[in-house]
């Protein structure tokens, strides 16, 4: 299919502590795989998957951290112009849940005001090792005004739902924005990437 063959394009960005399963979630959704072992795919910047929602083609551009979260060194530019953020923790790892406020501070500072954030508790296939109860996570996400979901990248539980729900929300958000066309405040993504800049020659 050609590159322009879609109705919507959204940039989705994954964040959260190292080891919580971000890369696995992306690969499960885009490739249908659960890669054994850890590690990013060298040289892959983002993954793309086009889904159809109510007859409309939605192209999702899904960005992974490139491992920069490991020593808390994510670049600010990673957050720029993201339409949605998937903030992930590991339900079997208390520490990954306790770090969430720190992640929220980064989001608050670097991401657009309009960004949609989803909180994801991953690895529910390891229920016997759960350290973070569903209730705690629900309370936290409610207080922070986030949508919340538990997943298993391994068993493919709720992974499709996560991305498709997000796509639906993004579509309705995008529709609202075109209705309420607020020109006043500059939005991220308002600039142009180089290839889109038009040419006009001196001569």
């Amino acid at each position: 299919m050609s590159m322009e063959d879609y109705d919507f394009l959204f940039k989705i960005v994954l964040i959260g502590n190292a080891g919580v399963g971000k890369t696995c979630l992306v690969r499960r959704f885009t490739q249908g795989l659960f890669p054994p072992g850890q590690g990013a795919t060298i040289g892959v910047d983002f993954m793309i998957k086009t889904v159809e929602i109510n007859g409309e083609k939605v192209k999702l551009q899904i960005w992974d951290t490139a491992g920069q979260e490991r020593f808390r060194s994510i670049t600010q530019s990673y957050y720029r112009s993201a339409n949605a953020l998937i903030l992930t923790y590991d339900i079997t790892c208390e520490e990954s849940f306790r770090c969430l406020p720190e992640w929220l501070r980064e989001i608050e500072q670097y991401a657009s005001n309009k960004v949609i954030t989803v909180l994801v508790g991953n690895k529910i296939d390891l229920a016997e090792r759960r350290e973070v109860s569903q209730q705690r996570a629900e309370e936290f996400s409610e207080a922070q005004d986030m949508y919340y979901l538990e997943t298993s990248a391994k068993e493919s539980d709720n992974v499709e739902k996560l991305f498709l729900d997000l796509a639906c929300r993004l579509i309705s958000e995008a529709r609202q924005n075109t209705l309420v066309n607020n020109v006043s405040s500059p939005l991220p993504g308002e600039g142009k990437s180089i290839s889109y800049l038009t040419c006009c020659n001196f001569n």
Binding site: M1, G43, I48, T50, E52, L164, D165, C168, R169
Partner: peptide
């Protein structure tokens, strides 16, 4: 390498039955 070259088209691979999207919408 262009990430656009690693495109995984969802059309033929959606495990959920057609129509689920409406359910998702309703839930949202």
């Amino acid at each position: 390498p262009n990430p656009e070259d690693i495109v995984f088209d969802g059309d033929d691979k959606q495990p959920e039955a057609p129509g689920t999207n409406n359910i998702i919408m309703a839930k949202l």
